[in-house]
Design a protein around this nucleic acid. Structure first.
Lengths: 205, 205
DNA sequence: CGAAGCATGTAAGGTGTTACATGATTCT
DNA sequence: AGAATCATGTAACACCTTACATGCTTCG
Protein backbone atom coordinates (compact mmCIF):
# COMPACT_ATOMS: atom_id res chain seq x y z
CA UNK A 1 0.00 0.00 0.00
CA UNK A 2 1.60 3.20 -1.17
CA UNK A 3 -0.41 6.04 0.40
CA UNK A 4 0.75 5.65 3.97
CA UNK A 5 -0.55 7.80 6.82
CA UNK A 6 -0.62 11.26 5.36
CA UNK A 7 -0.63 13.59 8.37
CA UNK A 8 -4.35 14.42 8.14
CA UNK A 9 -3.54 17.23 5.79
CA UNK A 10 -6.46 19.57 5.25
CA UNK A 11 -8.77 18.93 8.17
CA UNK A 12 -10.36 22.01 9.64
CA UNK A 13 -8.69 23.40 12.71
CA UNK A 14 -10.92 22.97 15.75
CA UNK A 15 -11.76 26.22 17.55
CA UNK A 16 -10.36 24.98 20.86
CA UNK A 17 -7.05 24.29 19.21
CA UNK A 18 -7.09 27.64 17.44
CA UNK A 19 -7.82 29.52 20.62
CA UNK A 20 -5.08 27.71 22.54
CA UNK A 21 -2.57 28.42 19.79
CA UNK A 22 -3.59 32.08 19.71
CA UNK A 23 -3.19 32.48 23.44
CA UNK A 24 0.15 30.67 23.51
CA UNK A 25 1.34 32.73 20.56
CA UNK A 26 0.43 35.95 22.37
CA UNK A 27 2.68 34.90 25.20
CA UNK A 28 3.90 31.52 26.57
CA UNK A 29 1.46 29.97 29.00
CA UNK A 30 0.83 26.85 31.06
CA UNK A 31 -2.30 24.73 30.96
CA UNK A 32 -3.37 26.34 34.19
CA UNK A 33 -2.95 29.84 32.73
CA UNK A 34 -4.94 28.86 29.68
CA UNK A 35 -7.80 27.47 31.75
CA UNK A 36 -7.94 30.72 33.71
CA UNK A 37 -7.94 32.83 30.58
CA UNK A 38 -10.86 30.85 29.20
CA UNK A 39 -12.70 31.42 32.43
CA UNK A 40 -12.02 35.10 32.77
CA UNK A 41 -11.56 36.48 29.30
CA UNK A 42 -12.85 34.22 26.55
CA UNK A 43 -15.80 32.82 28.50
CA UNK A 44 -18.25 35.05 26.65
CA UNK A 45 -17.45 33.56 23.27
CA UNK A 46 -15.93 30.16 24.07
CA UNK A 47 -15.41 27.96 27.10
CA UNK A 48 -13.00 25.16 27.92
CA UNK A 49 -12.33 23.26 31.11
CA UNK A 50 -8.85 22.19 32.12
CA UNK A 51 -9.94 18.60 31.49
CA UNK A 52 -10.20 19.52 27.83
CA UNK A 53 -7.13 21.73 27.72
CA UNK A 54 -4.50 19.35 29.07
CA UNK A 55 -5.17 16.55 26.59
CA UNK A 56 -5.28 19.06 23.72
CA UNK A 57 -1.92 20.48 24.81
CA UNK A 58 -0.46 16.97 24.90
CA UNK A 59 -1.76 16.38 21.38
CA UNK A 60 -0.36 19.64 20.06
CA UNK A 61 2.98 18.83 21.66
CA UNK A 62 3.02 15.45 19.91
CA UNK A 63 2.25 17.16 16.61
CA UNK A 64 4.95 19.76 17.12
CA UNK A 65 2.65 22.77 17.20
CA UNK A 66 3.89 23.80 20.64
CA UNK A 67 6.95 23.02 22.74
CA UNK A 68 7.67 23.09 26.45
CA UNK A 69 9.68 26.24 26.89
CA UNK A 70 10.26 25.93 30.63
CA UNK A 71 9.27 23.75 33.54
CA UNK A 72 8.46 25.66 36.68
CA UNK A 73 7.66 24.80 40.23
CA UNK A 74 4.81 22.43 41.10
CA UNK A 75 5.16 20.61 37.81
CA UNK A 76 4.25 23.71 35.83
CA UNK A 77 4.95 23.35 32.12
CA UNK A 78 5.06 26.54 30.09
CA UNK A 79 4.23 26.10 26.43
CA UNK A 80 5.49 28.23 23.58
CA UNK A 81 4.34 28.13 19.98
CA UNK A 82 6.51 26.65 17.21
CA UNK A 83 6.78 27.78 13.59
CA UNK A 84 4.49 24.93 12.62
CA UNK A 85 2.05 25.99 15.31
CA UNK A 86 2.08 29.54 14.03
CA UNK A 87 1.17 28.29 10.56
CA UNK A 88 -1.67 26.24 12.02
CA UNK A 89 -2.93 29.33 13.85
CA UNK A 90 -2.98 31.39 10.66
CA UNK A 91 -4.65 28.50 8.87
CA UNK A 92 -7.39 28.51 11.49
CA UNK A 93 -7.89 32.24 11.18
CA UNK A 94 -8.03 32.32 7.41
CA UNK A 95 -9.75 29.06 6.52
CA UNK A 96 -13.16 29.22 4.91
CA UNK A 97 -15.97 30.82 6.86
CA UNK A 98 -17.22 29.03 9.95
CA UNK A 99 -20.89 28.63 10.75
CA UNK A 100 -21.27 32.00 12.44
CA UNK A 101 -24.92 31.74 13.29
CA UNK A 102 -26.38 32.74 16.59
CA UNK A 103 -26.59 28.94 16.72
CA UNK A 104 -27.53 27.40 20.05
CA UNK A 105 -28.97 30.32 21.88
CA UNK A 106 -31.34 28.80 24.40
CA UNK A 107 -33.01 32.12 25.17
CA UNK A 108 -33.97 32.67 21.56
CA UNK A 109 -35.06 29.05 21.28
CA UNK A 110 -37.43 29.55 24.19
CA UNK A 111 -38.79 32.72 22.65
CA UNK A 112 -40.31 30.62 19.86
CA UNK A 113 -42.71 29.17 22.39
CA UNK A 114 -43.74 32.14 24.51
CA UNK A 115 -47.29 31.45 23.38
CA UNK A 116 -47.45 28.52 25.79
CA UNK A 117 -47.02 30.82 28.77
CA UNK A 118 -49.46 33.22 30.33
CA UNK A 119 -48.76 36.88 29.58
CA UNK A 120 -47.48 37.27 33.12
CA UNK A 121 -45.09 34.34 32.80
CA UNK A 122 -43.85 35.56 29.43
CA UNK A 123 -43.26 39.03 30.79
CA UNK A 124 -41.40 37.59 33.76
CA UNK A 125 -39.18 35.56 31.45
CA UNK A 126 -38.37 38.54 29.25
CA UNK A 127 -37.71 40.80 32.20
CA UNK A 128 -35.26 38.29 33.70
CA UNK A 129 -33.64 38.03 30.32
CA UNK A 130 -33.25 41.79 30.10
CA UNK A 131 -31.65 41.93 33.54
CA UNK A 132 -29.02 39.41 32.52
CA UNK A 133 -28.06 41.54 29.54
CA UNK A 134 -28.09 44.75 31.50
CA UNK A 135 -25.67 43.28 34.04
CA UNK A 136 -23.42 41.97 31.33
CA UNK A 137 -23.44 45.28 29.50
CA UNK A 138 -22.24 47.01 32.67
CA UNK A 139 -19.37 44.58 32.96
CA UNK A 140 -18.36 45.09 29.36
CA UNK A 141 -18.48 48.85 29.71
CA UNK A 142 -16.14 48.56 32.70
CA UNK A 143 -13.78 46.47 30.62
CA UNK A 144 -13.97 49.06 27.87
CA UNK A 145 -12.94 51.79 30.28
CA UNK A 146 -9.94 49.70 31.41
CA UNK A 147 -8.91 49.18 27.80
CA UNK A 148 -9.17 52.92 27.17
CA UNK A 149 -7.01 53.72 30.16
CA UNK A 150 -4.32 51.27 29.09
CA UNK A 151 -4.34 52.66 25.59
CA UNK A 152 -3.98 56.24 26.77
CA UNK A 153 -0.94 55.26 28.80
CA UNK A 154 0.44 53.60 25.70
CA UNK A 155 0.64 50.27 27.48
CA UNK A 156 0.94 46.96 25.62
CA UNK A 157 -2.03 44.72 24.85
CA UNK A 158 -2.89 43.22 28.25
CA UNK A 159 -2.83 39.62 27.11
CA UNK A 160 0.25 39.83 24.93
CA UNK A 161 1.18 40.51 21.35
CA UNK A 162 -1.30 39.71 18.60
CA UNK A 163 -4.21 39.69 21.02
CA UNK A 164 -6.93 42.14 19.96
CA UNK A 165 -9.46 41.74 22.74
CA UNK A 166 -10.89 45.23 22.28
CA UNK A 167 -12.47 44.14 18.98
CA UNK A 168 -14.64 41.30 20.30
CA UNK A 169 -15.39 43.48 23.33
CA UNK A 170 -17.15 45.91 21.01
CA UNK A 171 -19.22 43.04 19.65
CA UNK A 172 -20.15 42.11 23.19
CA UNK A 173 -21.26 45.64 24.01
CA UNK A 174 -23.29 45.91 20.84
CA UNK A 175 -24.77 42.44 21.39
CA UNK A 176 -25.96 43.24 24.90
CA UNK A 177 -27.46 46.56 23.85
CA UNK A 178 -29.23 44.83 21.00
CA UNK A 179 -30.62 42.13 23.30
CA UNK A 180 -31.87 44.71 25.79
CA UNK A 181 -33.71 46.55 23.02
CA UNK A 182 -35.07 43.27 21.71
CA UNK A 183 -36.43 42.15 25.09
CA UNK A 184 -38.18 45.50 25.38
CA UNK A 185 -39.68 45.14 21.94
CA UNK A 186 -40.70 41.56 22.77
CA UNK A 187 -42.40 42.68 25.99
CA UNK A 188 -44.55 45.07 23.99
CA UNK A 189 -45.25 42.44 21.37
CA UNK A 190 -46.39 39.95 24.00
CA UNK A 191 -48.80 42.54 25.38
CA UNK A 192 -50.07 43.39 21.89
CA UNK A 193 -50.79 39.72 21.25
CA UNK A 194 -52.59 39.41 24.57
CA UNK A 195 -54.94 42.22 23.60
CA UNK A 196 -55.40 41.09 20.01
CA UNK A 197 -58.29 38.74 19.06
CA UNK A 198 -56.61 35.45 20.02
CA UNK A 199 -54.22 35.07 17.08
CA UNK A 200 -56.38 32.45 15.39
CA UNK A 201 -57.41 34.96 12.77
CA UNK A 202 -60.82 36.41 12.29
CA UNK A 203 -63.39 33.73 11.50
CA UNK A 204 -64.09 33.66 7.80
CA UNK A 205 -67.09 31.47 7.25
CA UNK B 1 -32.76 0.60 50.79
CA UNK B 2 -35.78 2.89 51.12
CA UNK B 3 -35.29 5.67 48.57
CA UNK B 4 -35.94 3.73 45.40
CA UNK B 5 -35.64 5.24 41.95
CA UNK B 6 -37.29 8.62 42.25
CA UNK B 7 -38.19 9.64 38.70
CA UNK B 8 -35.32 12.14 38.29
CA UNK B 9 -37.49 14.86 39.74
CA UNK B 10 -35.99 18.31 39.31
CA UNK B 11 -33.37 17.92 36.64
CA UNK B 12 -33.19 20.76 34.16
CA UNK B 13 -35.02 20.22 30.94
CA UNK B 14 -32.58 19.89 28.05
CA UNK B 15 -33.12 22.41 25.25
CA UNK B 16 -33.54 19.71 22.61
CA UNK B 17 -36.34 18.16 24.61
CA UNK B 18 -37.93 21.55 25.24
CA UNK B 19 -37.87 22.45 21.58
CA UNK B 20 -39.35 19.11 20.52
CA UNK B 21 -42.12 19.44 23.08
CA UNK B 22 -42.85 22.99 21.93
CA UNK B 23 -43.07 21.97 18.28
CA UNK B 24 -45.24 18.94 19.02
CA UNK B 25 -47.47 21.06 21.25
CA UNK B 26 -47.93 23.60 18.44
CA UNK B 27 -49.23 20.82 16.25
CA UNK B 28 -48.70 17.01 16.12
CA UNK B 29 -45.63 16.04 14.15
CA UNK B 30 -43.51 13.06 13.15
CA UNK B 31 -39.77 12.73 13.71
CA UNK B 32 -39.25 13.52 10.07
CA UNK B 33 -41.32 16.71 10.35
CA UNK B 34 -39.37 17.76 13.40
CA UNK B 35 -36.03 17.22 11.69
CA UNK B 36 -37.19 19.36 8.80
CA UNK B 37 -38.38 22.12 11.09
CA UNK B 38 -35.02 22.20 12.83
CA UNK B 39 -33.37 22.48 9.45
CA UNK B 40 -35.58 25.15 8.00
CA UNK B 41 -36.90 27.20 10.86
CA UNK B 42 -34.98 26.76 14.10
CA UNK B 43 -31.56 26.28 12.51
CA UNK B 44 -30.53 29.82 13.37
CA UNK B 45 -30.86 29.30 17.10
CA UNK B 46 -30.61 25.52 17.54
CA UNK B 47 -29.83 22.50 15.41
CA UNK B 48 -30.66 18.81 15.70
CA UNK B 49 -30.16 15.91 13.32
CA UNK B 50 -32.69 13.15 12.95
CA UNK B 51 -30.21 10.83 14.64
CA UNK B 52 -30.70 12.87 17.79
CA UNK B 53 -34.42 13.39 17.40
CA UNK B 54 -35.58 9.78 17.04
CA UNK B 55 -33.96 8.51 20.25
CA UNK B 56 -35.21 11.57 22.15
CA UNK B 57 -38.75 10.93 20.91
CA UNK B 58 -38.48 7.31 22.05
CA UNK B 59 -37.35 8.51 25.46
CA UNK B 60 -40.16 11.02 25.78
CA UNK B 61 -42.65 8.36 24.74
CA UNK B 62 -41.34 6.06 27.49
CA UNK B 63 -41.70 8.87 30.01
CA UNK B 64 -45.22 9.67 28.88
CA UNK B 65 -44.48 13.19 27.67
CA UNK B 66 -45.77 12.42 24.18
CA UNK B 67 -47.97 9.74 22.67
CA UNK B 68 -48.32 8.30 19.19
CA UNK B 69 -51.48 9.90 17.89
CA UNK B 70 -51.54 8.20 14.51
CA UNK B 71 -49.46 5.89 12.38
CA UNK B 72 -49.31 6.86 8.76
CA UNK B 73 -47.89 5.40 5.63
CA UNK B 74 -44.19 4.43 5.34
CA UNK B 75 -44.01 3.77 9.07
CA UNK B 76 -44.74 7.39 9.91
CA UNK B 77 -45.54 7.95 13.57
CA UNK B 78 -47.23 11.20 14.46
CA UNK B 79 -46.60 12.37 17.99
CA UNK B 80 -48.92 14.49 20.11
CA UNK B 81 -48.15 16.05 23.46
CA UNK B 82 -49.66 14.72 26.70
CA UNK B 83 -50.71 16.69 29.78
CA UNK B 84 -47.47 15.63 31.45
CA UNK B 85 -45.55 16.77 28.41
CA UNK B 86 -47.27 20.13 28.48
CA UNK B 87 -46.20 20.58 32.10
CA UNK B 88 -42.62 19.68 31.19
CA UNK B 89 -42.71 22.25 28.38
CA UNK B 90 -43.85 25.00 30.72
CA UNK B 91 -41.24 23.90 33.23
CA UNK B 92 -38.55 24.29 30.57
CA UNK B 93 -39.80 27.74 29.62
CA UNK B 94 -40.03 29.06 33.16
CA UNK B 95 -37.13 27.37 34.92
CA UNK B 96 -34.29 29.53 36.14
CA UNK B 97 -32.34 31.49 33.58
CA UNK B 98 -30.16 29.58 31.15
CA UNK B 99 -26.63 30.60 30.25
CA UNK B 100 -27.65 33.10 27.58
CA UNK B 101 -24.16 34.19 26.60
CA UNK B 102 -23.04 34.61 23.03
CA UNK B 103 -21.15 31.48 24.09
CA UNK B 104 -19.35 29.56 21.35
CA UNK B 105 -19.25 32.05 18.59
CA UNK B 106 -16.27 31.04 16.49
CA UNK B 107 -16.22 34.31 14.56
CA UNK B 108 -15.85 36.35 17.71
CA UNK B 109 -13.29 33.89 19.04
CA UNK B 110 -11.18 34.44 15.94
CA UNK B 111 -11.50 38.19 16.28
CA UNK B 112 -9.41 37.99 19.47
CA UNK B 113 -6.44 37.04 17.32
CA UNK B 114 -6.70 39.32 14.31
CA UNK B 115 -3.30 40.67 15.30
CA UNK B 116 -1.67 37.52 13.92
CA UNK B 117 -2.86 38.30 10.43
CA UNK B 118 -1.64 40.90 7.99
CA UNK B 119 -3.94 43.89 7.61
CA UNK B 120 -5.00 42.52 4.23
CA UNK B 121 -5.84 39.10 5.66
CA UNK B 122 -7.75 40.64 8.56
CA UNK B 123 -9.71 42.86 6.22
CA UNK B 124 -10.51 39.89 4.02
CA UNK B 125 -11.75 37.92 7.02
CA UNK B 126 -13.97 40.76 8.21
CA UNK B 127 -15.35 41.43 4.75
CA UNK B 128 -16.29 37.77 4.34
CA UNK B 129 -17.89 37.90 7.74
CA UNK B 130 -19.92 40.94 6.78
CA UNK B 131 -21.15 39.27 3.61
CA UNK B 132 -22.45 36.32 5.60
CA UNK B 133 -24.47 38.62 7.81
CA UNK B 134 -25.74 40.71 4.92
CA UNK B 135 -27.03 37.60 3.17
CA UNK B 136 -28.67 36.36 6.32
CA UNK B 137 -30.27 39.73 6.99
CA UNK B 138 -31.85 39.65 3.53
CA UNK B 139 -33.30 36.25 4.25
CA UNK B 140 -34.73 37.37 7.56
CA UNK B 141 -36.27 40.46 6.02
CA UNK B 142 -37.98 38.24 3.46
CA UNK B 143 -39.31 36.09 6.29
CA UNK B 144 -40.52 39.22 8.04
CA UNK B 145 -42.47 40.26 4.95
CA UNK B 146 -44.12 36.83 4.79
CA UNK B 147 -45.10 37.07 8.44
CA UNK B 148 -46.58 40.52 7.82
CA UNK B 149 -48.62 39.28 4.90
CA UNK B 150 -50.01 36.37 6.88
CA UNK B 151 -50.89 38.65 9.74
CA UNK B 152 -52.72 41.11 7.51
CA UNK B 153 -54.82 38.29 6.15
CA UNK B 154 -55.58 37.26 9.71
CA UNK B 155 -54.11 33.83 9.10
CA UNK B 156 -53.04 31.51 11.93
CA UNK B 157 -49.45 31.22 13.16
CA UNK B 158 -47.75 29.30 10.34
CA UNK B 159 -46.27 26.62 12.59
CA UNK B 160 -49.30 26.12 14.83
CA UNK B 161 -50.73 27.37 18.05
CA UNK B 162 -48.38 28.70 20.72
CA UNK B 163 -45.59 29.21 18.21
CA UNK B 164 -44.34 32.81 18.22
CA UNK B 165 -41.69 32.74 15.54
CA UNK B 166 -41.99 36.44 14.77
CA UNK B 167 -40.36 37.26 18.10
CA UNK B 168 -37.04 35.44 17.62
CA UNK B 169 -37.10 36.63 14.00
CA UNK B 170 -36.81 40.18 15.29
CA UNK B 171 -33.80 39.13 17.35
CA UNK B 172 -32.27 37.64 14.22
CA UNK B 173 -32.80 40.82 12.23
CA UNK B 174 -31.33 42.95 14.98
CA UNK B 175 -28.44 40.54 15.45
CA UNK B 176 -27.46 40.61 11.79
CA UNK B 177 -27.67 44.39 11.61
CA UNK B 178 -25.54 44.61 14.72
CA UNK B 179 -22.93 42.25 13.30
CA UNK B 180 -22.77 44.18 10.02
CA UNK B 181 -22.15 47.40 11.91
CA UNK B 182 -19.60 45.67 14.11
CA UNK B 183 -17.62 44.27 11.16
CA UNK B 184 -17.54 47.75 9.67
CA UNK B 185 -16.29 49.20 12.93
CA UNK B 186 -13.72 46.40 13.19
CA UNK B 187 -12.47 47.06 9.65
CA UNK B 188 -11.76 50.65 10.61
CA UNK B 189 -10.17 49.59 13.87
CA UNK B 190 -7.84 47.19 12.08
CA UNK B 191 -6.74 50.00 9.76
CA UNK B 192 -6.27 52.38 12.67
CA UNK B 193 -4.04 49.84 14.38
CA UNK B 194 -2.03 49.31 11.21
CA UNK B 195 -1.27 53.02 11.05
CA UNK B 196 -0.58 53.41 14.77
CA UNK B 197 2.98 53.01 16.11
CA UNK B 198 3.01 49.19 16.35
CA UNK B 199 0.82 48.75 19.41
CA UNK B 200 3.75 48.15 21.70
CA UNK B 201 3.27 51.57 23.28
CA UNK B 202 5.56 54.50 22.94
CA UNK B 203 8.97 53.82 24.45
CA UNK B 204 9.25 55.33 27.88
CA UNK B 205 12.89 55.17 28.85
C1' DC C 1 -39.07 1.99 -14.04
C1' DG C 2 -35.97 5.13 -12.00
C1' DA C 3 -35.23 9.21 -9.18
C1' DA C 4 -36.58 12.04 -5.55
C1' DG C 5 -38.38 12.43 -1.35
C1' DC C 6 -40.53 10.32 2.81
C1' DA C 7 -39.54 7.84 6.86
C1' DT C 8 -37.10 5.49 10.63
C1' DG C 9 -33.57 3.85 12.86
C1' DT C 10 -28.28 2.50 14.65
C1' DA C 11 -23.13 3.13 15.14
C1' DA C 12 -18.90 5.39 15.60
C1' DG C 13 -16.41 9.10 16.79
C1' DG C 14 -15.60 13.79 18.32
C1' DT C 15 -16.51 17.44 21.62
C1' DG C 16 -17.72 19.15 26.10
C1' DT C 17 -19.00 18.88 31.18
C1' DT C 18 -18.74 17.12 35.73
C1' DA C 19 -16.61 14.51 38.94
C1' DC C 20 -12.67 12.07 40.74
C1' DA C 21 -7.84 12.21 42.23
C1' DT C 22 -3.52 13.96 43.76
C1' DG C 23 0.03 16.82 45.34
C1' DA C 24 3.08 21.22 45.89
C1' DT C 25 3.62 25.99 47.34
C1' DT C 26 2.34 30.23 49.32
C1' DC C 27 -0.04 33.12 52.44
C1' DT C 28 -2.11 34.16 56.93
C1' DA D 1 -0.91 24.53 60.96
C1' DG D 2 -4.52 25.25 57.87
C1' DA D 3 -6.57 27.47 53.88
C1' DA D 4 -6.17 29.12 49.45
C1' DT D 5 -4.29 28.73 45.24
C1' DC D 6 -1.30 26.68 41.89
C1' DA D 7 -0.85 22.78 39.02
C1' DT D 8 -1.74 18.52 36.37
C1' DG D 9 -3.95 14.82 35.12
C1' DT D 10 -7.95 10.79 34.32
C1' DA D 11 -12.78 8.85 34.05
C1' DA D 12 -17.51 8.77 33.14
C1' DC D 13 -21.07 10.54 30.97
C1' DA D 14 -23.85 13.63 28.06
C1' DC D 15 -24.33 15.73 23.79
C1' DC D 16 -23.71 16.30 18.81
C1' DT D 17 -22.25 15.17 14.09
C1' DT D 18 -21.37 12.12 10.43
C1' DA D 19 -21.85 8.00 8.38
C1' DC D 20 -24.10 3.62 7.77
C1' DA D 21 -28.36 1.04 6.78
C1' DT D 22 -32.87 0.08 5.16
C1' DG D 23 -37.23 0.39 2.92
C1' DC D 24 -41.64 2.61 1.13
C1' DT D 25 -44.24 5.84 -1.86
C1' DT D 26 -44.95 9.22 -5.16
C1' DC D 27 -44.00 11.58 -9.33
C1' DG D 28 -42.31 12.02 -13.91
Amino acid sequence: VATASQPDRERQVAPLRGALLGLIASRPRSGYDLAKTFDLTLANVWTAQHSQIYPELAGMLREGLVRVRAEGTRGRKEYAITAKGKRELVRWLTESAPPTRISRNESLLRSFFLGFLSVEQAEELLRREREVHEARLERYLDDERSFELLKQRGGPEPMGDGYTGAIPLQAGIRFERMMIEWTEWALEEVRRRANAPAGRGRPRG
